[in-house]
């Protein structure tokens, strides 16, 4: 049985080129390579700016995540990256009224 999958190359790079360690960066997508998957993306709201924001992911490992403070959960006018903390079950940001959290379903602890 032959190999099946999807290859999509960048513009001006021949998609029929055999992927190698040095040219995989020239492919937009290779279905035989692992890619981060979005597990969660959404807003969090704190009870007050000093009570903290917590999201329970319960993945059992620390995932790749990005936390941004915002000024609203419905119509934010800015996103500011902050260094929130994660355990194997929760992600917590201690200060701020609103946040936007992205979790990618990869990672280990």
């Amino acid at each position: 049985m032959g190999d099946f999958g999807i290859r999509i190359s960048e513009a001006d790079f021949d998609v029929n080129t055999t992927p190698t360690e040095s040219n995989k960066k020239n492919f937009v997508y290779l279905s035989d390579e692992n890619t981060p998957k979005v597990y969660y993306a959404g807003f969090l709201t704190a009870a007050d700016p000093f009570s903290g924001m917590t999201y329970e992911h319960n993945l059992g490992y620390v995932p790749i995540f990005f936390f941004f403070l915002t000024d609203s959960a419905s119509s934010p006018t800015y996103y500011r990256y902050v260094n929130a903390v994660s355990s194997t079950t929760t992600i917590t940001q201690t200060i701020g009224g609103y946040g936007y959290l992205i979790i990618l379903e990869e990672g280990s602890s």
Binding site: I8, E10, K24, Y29, L30, E33, N34, T35, E106, G107
Partner: peptide, 14 residues
């Protein structure tokens, strides 16, 4: 949307 590059994992570890 493959108009945009998709991150491809080369290696991960602890």
């Amino acid at each position: 949307d493959t108009t945009y590059p998709i991150l491809k994992v080369k290696a991960s570890g602890t």
